[in-house]
Simulated assay, not measured.
Amino acid sequence: MRETPSGSSPGDPERVGSGTTVVRLRGEVDIVAALTLGPRLDALTAAPCPDLVLDLRPVSFIDCSGLSLLCRARNRVLARGGRLRLVVDGTPVLRLLRHTRLADVFEIGQHLPPGAVPAPDAVGPETAR
């Protein structure tokens, strides 16, 4: 396992274990957060066969910019033969994914996959409102 500095804000690493990158988002994933998070997710999905887990359990709000960000990451991962998983519980994120009929498009679980190392928060008060 290694820690890699993130692009969202200094000192916010993602965790990589067993080839799986886990990024934990929290707070509001809106247009402001998407501006910072977009380039970071693009970098994480640039390599062949990326294996990315986005932990969305601490997310309290997500708007259309956040959904667009998730869809873009999914499309980039699939185009490179990789895998994207979302970790979502009964938060507003899951409700929104169901209402927009995106719940069936993403691979969604309630817990981190076995062997995945929980990551520190990637989006917080300093990058999201």
Results as ranks from 00 to 15, higher is better:
Gly81Pro: 05
Arg72Cys: 04
Ala73Gln: 01
Val53Lys: 12
Asp55Glu: 12
Leu84Thr: 07
Arg74Thr: 00
Arg40Leu: 09
Asp51Trp: 08
Val77His: 01
Asp89Cys: 08
Leu67Thr: 03
Arg72Val: 02
Leu44Pro: 10
Gly66Trp: 02
Pro58Trp: 04
Arg80Asp: 06
Gly90Phe: 06
Val88Asn: 14
Arg76Asp: 01
Leu86Met: 13
Cys64Phe: 09
Leu69Lys: 12
Pro50Leu: 13
Thr91Ala: 03
Phe61His: 03
Thr45Gly: 02
Leu94Ile: 04
Ala33Gln: 03
Ala33Ile: 05
Asn75Tyr: 00
Pro58Lys: 07
Cys64Trp: 15
Leu56Met: 15
Val77Asn: 01
Leu52Glu: 08
Leu86Glu: 06
Ile62Ser: 14
Ser60Thr: 15
Arg83Leu: 15
Arg72Gln: 13
Ala33Pro: 01
Ala33Trp: 04
Arg95Asp: 12
Leu67Asn: 02
Leu97Gln: 01
Ser68Ala: 12
Gly66His: 05
Ala34Pro: 04
Leu67Trp: 12
Ser65Gln: 03
Ile62Gln: 07
Leu56Ala: 12
Ala46Ser: 14
Leu96Gly: 06
Gly82Ile: 14
Ala79Pro: 02
Leu35Phe: 06
Pro48Met: 03
Ile62Ala: 13
Leu86Trp: 02
Phe61Asp: 08
Leu67Cys: 10
Leu54Tyr: 05
Leu94Tyr: 05
Leu70Cys: 09
Arg40Asp: 12
Val59Phe: 07
Leu84Arg: 11
Arg57Asn: 07
Gly81Asp: 08
Leu35Cys: 06
Thr36Gln: 12
Arg57His: 09
Leu97Pro: 08
Arg40Thr: 10
Leu44Val: 07
Ala43Lys: 13
Leu54Thr: 13
Gly81Glu: 01
Cys71Tyr: 04
Pro92Gly: 14
Arg80Thr: 09
Arg72Ser: 10
Pro48Ser: 12
Val93Ser: 13
Leu69Ile: 02
Val93Tyr: 13
Leu94Met: 14
Gly66Tyr: 04
Thr91Ser: 15
Leu41Ala: 02
